[in-house]
Amino acid sequence: MSQPYAEVIGDPIAQSKSPVIHGFWLEKLGLPGRYDRAHVTAEGLTGYLAGRRSDPDWRGCNVTMPHKQAVIPLLDRLDPLAARIGAVNTIVPEEGGLVGYNTDAPGFLEPLQPLLAQTHYFRMARVLGTGGAARAIIAALADAGMVIVLSGRNVEKARALLDELDPKGEHHVAPLDHFADATDFAFDDRTSCLDLVVNATALGMTGQPPLVFDISHAPPGSVFYDIVTSPLETPFLKLARGSGFATVDGLSMLIGQADHAFRRFFGATPPRGEADAELRSRLLA
């Protein structure tokens, strides 16, 4: 007997944790359906989507690297946020066509919502990295009223990204190695301010060199956020926590973006709150 299903596509794909997340929620809600992995190469992307269009059981897919931009010309419509970001991580069949969404942006912001709900005199985010993951993060932070300092190896690329994603914002750029050396900068009173330091690079990921960041660049009360999920406790987060700063790990964004996708795939609200602790245990098993 057929059942509704969704999946995640990418190349490679074996490392994806999305099937565990969506499978956990389907199980908890007692919903019929499944969530799979599908290894799709660049050459096979067009054929994959063409085949899924005619499958009545297919509820959509999440899209991971390297396809988040390549899928765009193959879709019938883009959600406005996905069009602005220029990247799609969720595809859903709607009204006879394929619609592209970006759930990375709201997923990134989800663990920050208690802070963002507060009133601040000033909000600043130091975002380290100018790759594909940074696009959704920049758009999300700009919409949350953050002044962004975008840091990358190529400052021209950083400036172009800011100008593309938030052309009216008063943002700044800095070379990535600027944050590697200590600073004696005297931060002003950060009371009633919100400061973030975000690792949007793959540095610190298993098999990659660590991100070099000197803690003196973090204003008092900063929140450190690392989107890397393997390992979950990166050197970047260890440094921050050891210095007394609050931290947010990569599973927070991963679960947050999956929440938005699950609602579109299966038409149900995933169990969150206390259930997140059990889900994290499964993801780390």
Rank of each mutant, 00 (worst) to 15 (best):
M1Q: 01
P4Q: 05
Y5R: 08
Y5H: 13
I9H: 11
G10K: 08
P12S: 08
Q15E: 12
S16L: 09
I21E: 05
W25D: 06
W25P: 08
L31G: 11
R34S: 15
Y35S: 05
Y35K: 09
V40N: 12
L45H: 06
T46K: 15
G47N: 06
Y48M: 04
R52K: 15
R53N: 03
S54A: 14
P56Y: 01
P56D: 03
D57G: 08
D57M: 10
W58I: 08
R59M: 14
G60F: 09
T64M: 03
T64L: 04
T64Q: 03
A70P: 11
D76F: 06
D76N: 13
L78P: 05
D79I: 00
D79V: 00
A82C: 02
A83L: 04
G86N: 04
G86L: 08
N89D: 00
T90P: 04
V92Y: 12
G96H: 07
G96S: 04
N102R: 01
D104W: 05
P106N: 02
F108K: 00
P111Q: 06
P114T: 06
L116M: 08
L116D: 03
Q118C: 11
Q118F: 11
Y121W: 15
A125D: 06
L128S: 10
G132K: 05
G132Y: 07
A133K: 02
A133R: 02
R135N: 01
R135Q: 02
A136Y: 05
I138M: 04
I138G: 00
A144H: 10
A144V: 06
G145R: 09
V147T: 14
V147P: 01
V149M: 13
L150D: 02
L150V: 08
N154D: 15
K157V: 14
A158H: 10
A158G: 09
D163G: 10
E164L: 14
E164G: 05
E164I: 13
K168G: 15
E170P: 08
H171N: 15
A180T: 12
D181M: 10
D181G: 06
A182R: 14
T183C: 04
D184C: 04
F185V: 09
A186V: 12
D188G: 14
R190E: 11
T191Q: 15
C193M: 15
C193N: 13
D195A: 09
A200Q: 05
T201Q: 01
T201I: 03
T206I: 01
Q208T: 00
P210Q: 04
D214R: 10
S216L: 07
P219V: 04
F224Q: 02
Y225G: 00
E233R: 14
L239R: 07
L239T: 05
F245K: 05
V248H: 04
D249N: 13
G250S: 00
L251P: 03
L254S: 03
L254F: 10
G256A: 08
Q257M: 10
Q257L: 12
Q257H: 07
Q257W: 11
R264S: 10
T269Q: 15
R272H: 12
E274G: 02
A275R: 09
